[in-house]
Amino acid sequence: MKFSLNGLYIESYTKCANCGVLIYEASAEDSARKKVHDGSIYCSQECVDWKLDRDARRAKAAV
């Protein structure tokens, strides 16, 4: 989530593409944990792994 320079309003909301939590641009903790995968932002490597596992499982089930 990105605030305007004056801090008075939100310019954009950034959420983890997997679990949906807000990722705060100003948070050092959030910035350290976040990952980019296939053009999407994730809050952590754990969410990237979860997404990949789910995709693989669902692809296998579809076959």
Binding site: I10, K15, G20
Partner: peptide, 15 residues
């Protein structure tokens, strides 16, 4: 308990 709520869906609304 962990929750995976994809953004932009009826379980995790976007502004």
């Amino acid at each position: 308990i962990r929750v995976m709520a994809p953004p932009g869906t009826i379980v995790n609304v976007d502004f």
